[in-house]
Amino acid sequence: MQNTEKKQWGVLARDCAIEAGKLIKRMLEEPLEVMYKSSASDLVTSVDRAVEKFVINTVLGAYPDHGILGEEGLFTDDISGMDTIWVIDPIDGTTNFVHQKLNYCVSIAVYHKGEAQVGVVYDPTREELFYAEKGNGAFLNDEPLPKPRQMVMEELLLASSVIWNRRAMKSGLAANIQDLALRSRGMRVLGVAALELAYVAAGRLDAYISLSLNAWDYGAGKLLVEEAGGTITRLDGKEIPFGEKSSILAGNPHIYPKVLELLGTKRV
């Protein structure tokens, strides 16, 4: 892989995200078609599918030998033997999208041989485009993201929705997160993992915790956090495996070790 290839992937990923945002806004002018997937809290809309189809067609038009790993599963070829995989969440935060028409985003990442090379998280309602390129930093609307600030536990702004997860409650993780929240400045629940990871990268949040995310949820955000100087691992502190469902702990590197210690994740 040449550096020029990575640059080209980044240009296409950003263009796709911005055009996807325009498509979303156009489709919002008509009534939403909302469907259930696995439950009443697991939603998909006609917009999710239209956006994923648009990104797939655009990517394959430029790179017909690349693979796609998307939330809606519209790319059906076997990607196991492909070197370059585009990881797409057409609308992360679909429940927010349906109920609020904000606090959602488009997430696009490019992985080559299992390594993230490009990550884009685009918030159409705020017109904020977070972009990372492996080895070249992380940006918000072309401005470099600030380096992580020095901080102590009392200044921590945490994001997580794990406290009402049944598995987390049974294991004791939910109680540990509640204790962590009591030690911190506050806790937020945005309900959109890709954007929450982008906010960790930008310093708007200091830590984000999830018990289980799909590859398309963290695909772009993982690289954003890393390139901004943050730390992102599984809840046990181990590396996140490519393409697999995983727990996530992302945070400011100055507070990450303490958060990991307080979570007591060996039981999870």
Rank of each mutant, 00 (worst) to 15 (best):
L102S: 12
L102M: 10
L102Y: 08
L102E: 13
L102F: 03
L102T: 11
Y104A: 00
Y104W: 01
V106S: 04
V106Y: 04
I108L: 12
I108P: 02
A109P: 00
A109Y: 01
A109F: 01
V110N: 10
V110D: 10
Y111Q: 00
H112N: 15
H112D: 13
K113C: 02
K113F: 01
K113T: 03
K113H: 07
K113P: 00
G114W: 11
G114C: 12
E115C: 07
A116E: 13
A116W: 06
A116Y: 07
A116L: 10
Q117W: 15
V118G: 05
V118Q: 10
G119W: 09
V120Q: 14
V121D: 08
D123Q: 04
D123W: 00
P124N: 06
T125D: 06
T125Q: 12
R126Q: 14
R126Y: 08
E128W: 11
E128Y: 14
L129Q: 03
F130Q: 07
Y131W: 14
Y131G: 04
Y131F: 15
E133N: 09
E133I: 11
G135C: 12
G135T: 11
G135V: 12
N136K: 11
G137D: 04
G137W: 05
A138M: 04
F139N: 00
F139G: 00
L140F: 04
N141G: 07
N141I: 09
N141S: 07
N141C: 05
D142L: 13
E143D: 08
E143R: 14
P144N: 15
P144V: 13
L145P: 04
L145C: 09
L145D: 10
P146G: 10
K147E: 02
P148E: 03
P148Y: 01
P148T: 01
R149H: 14
Q150W: 10
Q150H: 13
Q150L: 14
M151W: 05
M151R: 10
V152M: 08
V152Q: 12
M153W: 03
M153K: 08
E154S: 13
E155V: 11
L156V: 09
L157I: 15
L158M: 10
L158D: 06
A159D: 04
S160G: 04
S160K: 06
S161R: 10
S161A: 13
S161Q: 05
S161V: 04
V162T: 10
V162H: 02
V162D: 00
I163C: 06
I163R: 14
I163N: 03
W164S: 11
W164P: 00
N165Y: 01
N165T: 02
R166V: 14
R166Q: 15
R166I: 14
R167F: 12
R167K: 15
A168M: 05
A168E: 00
M169P: 01
M169S: 08
G172K: 09
G172F: 07
G172S: 06
L173Y: 04
L173R: 03
A174W: 07
A174Y: 09
A174E: 05
A174R: 07
A175Q: 15
N176V: 03
I177K: 07
Q178Y: 05
Q178F: 02
Q178E: 09
Q178W: 02
Q178G: 01
Q178N: 06
Q178M: 07
D179H: 12
D179I: 03
L180A: 07
L180F: 10
L180Q: 08
